Amino acid sequence: MASQGTKRSYEQMETDGERQNATEIRASVGKMIDGIGRFYIQMCTELKLSDYEGRLIQNSLTIERMVLSAFDERRNKYLEEHPSAGKDPKKTGGPIYKRVDRKWMRELVLYDKEEIRRIWRQANNGDDATAGLTHMMIWHSNLNDTTYQRTRALVRTGMDPRMCSLMQGSTLPRRSGAAGAAVKGVGTMVMELIRMIKRGINDRNFWRGENGRKTRSAYERMCNILKGKFQTAAQRAMMDQVRESRNPGNAEIEDLIFLARSALILRGSVAHKSCLPACVYGPAVASGYDFEKEGYSLVGIDPFKLLQNSQVYSLIRPNENPAHKSQLVWMACNSAAFEDLRVLSFIRGTKVSPRGKLSTRGVQIASNENMDAMESSTLELRSRYWAIRTRSGGNTNQQRASAGQISVQPAFSVQRNLPFDKPTIMAAFTGNTEGRTSDMRAEIIRMMEGAKPEEMSFQGRGVFELSDERAANPIVPSFDMSNEGSYFFGDNAEEYDN
């Protein structure tokens, strides 16, 4: 993207840094990872977990959730003011799984939030270390993106479920800051804005008074975040219109849905970061690795190297396929839920299948599930090659597409044709070009129609051997075009429920 120079890199967003050079960025990201790792080690000690239990991804998720809940100030305040039966607002906890007599047992633990905050700050040299908290939120978000298709949420806001490739980060909490905003897809931002506008339509006082002023500035800020994701002048001009509207209503909703559809071809720039579970960072720190000293990046080879040398386990339900569970977590670790499966298959070195073909449910185990038949197995999170994460949407291309997802959002900077089903997408653009945004709409449609099938995206960008740390010898991959490109292809993934 041309304006790259004016933006802070995501590592800076990730670490609240002012302008830093590459070495400083690597050190501050490393410091953040160190903090998460030290916190995780301490929690495993508190909970008396064995090494194996500490490497269980379900335990990692519970521990991450506990610290996120302990620092969720708004919710904590709300819980104190609106006490609900049987919930102690000062405590947080969740299921911890232990191996007892050759069987997995679930144990519900409860801790004072104050105590968890103390352990977290102690692991982070006394700081609140917001960057580390956001990092864990993005890992949870990436896992949700890989596990669930947001059909219901899309339909509720009037969008087409086939636009799911635009929904990265749709389950990120509001408090995820600049680093969170960077990884949100165009569809996620559109959905947040539509929800806001709908509230304004239904509630006369939404934009009024002292609160209304705050609401208005939040609305304009979200519009600017979305505008910054678009790469064409016409899309940005249309966002200006939406932002400046005196009284946002149905016309703005129409414009936003139009823009979301246009992003299936004229893709937005959305950041991709490899955020790993805390149970990967903990053992690495415990083994003596100093992330701050060595430096770390979320968008280069580092996460690949770390996963190459990590042992992570997962509980497996009786009829689940461990290899499929591994694929789910591998995609989440690489922030690749909406990437082209052919690119992923090449990088991973084994075939990556669409969601609907995987015999696996989510990673988390519900409290009512029976533990008797639970097994555990090693997650295979290694890769054959590594590639640089991208934040450009890439230019655009036609490809055989599917009944489910009709476009992709690249996660890796790797040369390819970008699949999208042009006739299906263009069919949504018939007729409606009147109104105050008509010239911009016409211009956007013209650009979409001009998108050429034979153009290559990320020209000359390749993948790298894991021994090639400096990215000196790019390998331009070859793809098996007979395979499906979309992950949520004609899909039956479970729906995400809060």
Rank of each mutant, 00 (worst) to 15 (best):
Gly169Ser: 07
Gly185Pro: 03
Glu339Lys: 14
Asp203Glu: 08
Gln149Cys: 08
Arg213Lys: 01
Asn417Arg: 05
Leu358Pro: 13
Gln398Tyr: 00
Phe304Cys: 09
Asn211Cys: 13
Arg102Glu: 12
Ser377Asn: 14
Ala182Lys: 13
Gln308Thr: 04
Gly268Trp: 15
Val183Asn: 09
Gly460Asn: 12
Val343Thr: 13
Phe429Ile: 12
Ser165Val: 10
Val285Thr: 13
Asn368Gly: 00
Pro248Phe: 07
Thr232Pro: 12
Ala451His: 15
Ala237Gln: 00
Arg195Gln: 05
Trp386Phe: 15
Gly362Ala: 05
Gly200Glu: 13
Val242Trp: 07
Glu449Ala: 04
Ala263Arg: 13
Lys229Pro: 03
Phe258Lys: 10
Pro474Met: 09
Leu379Asn: 12
Pro474Cys: 15
Ser50Asp: 00
Trp207Glu: 10
Asn250Lys: 06
Val242Met: 13
Thr62Ser: 14
Lys77Tyr: 01
Leu315Asn: 04
Gly212Cys: 12
Asp127Ile: 01
Ala471Val: 14
Arg436Cys: 10
Tyr296Ile: 13
Glu320His: 10
Ala123Gln: 09
Val190Glu: 08
Gln459Leu: 00
Glu18Asn: 00
Ala22Met: 07
Asn144Gly: 11
Gly450Gln: 03
Ala70Ile: 14
Asn247Phe: 04
Glu46Cys: 02
Ile194Met: 09
Cys223Arg: 12
Ala427Ile: 15
Met447Gly: 09
Leu276Thr: 12
Gly17Met: 05
Gly212Met: 06
Gly30Asp: 09
Arg416Phe: 12
Ser486Pro: 13
Gln122Asp: 13
Leu264Cys: 05
Glu107Asn: 04
Phe420Cys: 03
His82Leu: 03
Gly431Ser: 01
Ala237Thr: 06
Ser413Gln: 10
Asn247Ile: 08
Arg317Phe: 11
Leu276Arg: 13
Gly450Tyr: 09
Asn417Cys: 01
Ser413Leu: 13
Cys164Phe: 03
Arg175Trp: 15
Glu469Gln: 02
Ile197Gly: 15
Thr437Val: 01
Ile138Asp: 09
Thr390Lys: 07
Gly295Ser: 10
Met163Ala: 01
Arg216Cys: 05
Lys98Leu: 00
Asp255Cys: 11
Phe291Ser: 15
Ser50Arg: 00
Arg441Asn: 11
Asp51Ser: 00
Lys87Asn: 05
Asn395Thr: 02
Pro283Gln: 00
Gly431Asn: 00
Lys184Ser: 02
Gln241Val: 13
Arg382Ile: 14
Ser269Gln: 05
Gly356Val: 03
Trp386Val: 03
Val109Gln: 00
Cys279Gln: 12
Val100Ser: 03
Glu24Pro: 06
Ala131Leu: 05
Ile265Val: 15
Arg400Pro: 13
Gly435Asn: 11
Tyr219Asn: 05
Met331Asp: 06
Leu298His: 09
Gln58Ala: 05
Ala22Pro: 05
Glu339Met: 12
Met13Leu: 03
Leu49Val: 00
Ala284Asn: 09
Lys198Val: 08
Ser217Lys: 13
Trp330Val: 04
Asn59Gln: 09
Arg55Ser: 15
Ala218Cys: 07
Thr147Leu: 07
Ala260Arg: 08
Arg65Glu: 10
Ser274Arg: 10
Asp160Met: 10
Ile253Ser: 13
Asn370Cys: 00
Ser262His: 13
Ala411Gly: 13
Glu252Asp: 05
Trp120Lys: 08
Asn397Arg: 00
Ser407Val: 14
Asp480Arg: 09
Gly187Leu: 04
Pro173Arg: 02
Ala153Trp: 10
Val343His: 12
Met238His: 03
Val463Ser: 14
Asn483Leu: 01
Asp51Leu: 00
Asn142Gly: 06
Asn309Gly: 00
Asn417Thr: 01
Arg391Gly: 14
Phe488Cys: 14
Tyr385Asp: 12
Arg208Thr: 03
Gln168Glu: 09
Ser310Met: 04
Pro354Phe: 10
Arg267Gly: 15
Glu64Arg: 01
Met448Lys: 13
Asp480Gly: 13
Leu276Ile: 12
